[in-house]
Amino acid sequence: MSTKPKDGTDIAAGLLFMAIAAFFGWQGLGLEMGTSTRMGPGYFPMVLSGLLFLLGAVILVRAFGRPDDEPFGRVAWRGIAFILPAPIFFGLTVRGLGFVPALFITTLIAAQASLRMRPLPALILAVVVTILSTLIFSYGLGLPFRRFGPWLPL
């Protein structure tokens, strides 16, 4: 088995598609199928889930007997750890902390994703971004965000 060529990337892709299809299929179980005249909410998703599962399976099968032509490469763990939480943090705090502090910290978090960003430049960047955005969006365009939210003792 191990001597035979196989495309590891496509195996993973096929399995992922099948897993997603299974998840949607499972979630859609509780939905009514209806009739073909009046299709229920579950009809179309179920057809799609089946189709996706099938496509995933074909991708999986065809991955065997063919070499992986491109290396998988590194994974941006640091990027995942800091980039993805940034919008989540903004969403969680923009109402409570207010626009200004939420944006400041969001920028600061995102800046940590790069090894080349030193603490001081990161701080300066966050300050500049926050000031400019507040001027543009809050004062300039009058977006209905609270600049400082109720969580702050102001």
């Binding site: 969403g91 969001t106 920028t107 994703a113 960003m117 960047l125």
Partner: peptide
């Protein structure tokens, strides 16, 4: 490394401004 924190900040504002829905973020 300077550009992408700005991108993250802008897209947070942009996505949130449409419906004020944190779940979009």
């Amino acid at each position: 490394f300077v550009l992408f924190p700005i991108i993250m900040a802008m897209c947070s504002i942009g996505v949130y401004s449409v419906n004020s829905n944190p779940y979009d973020l």
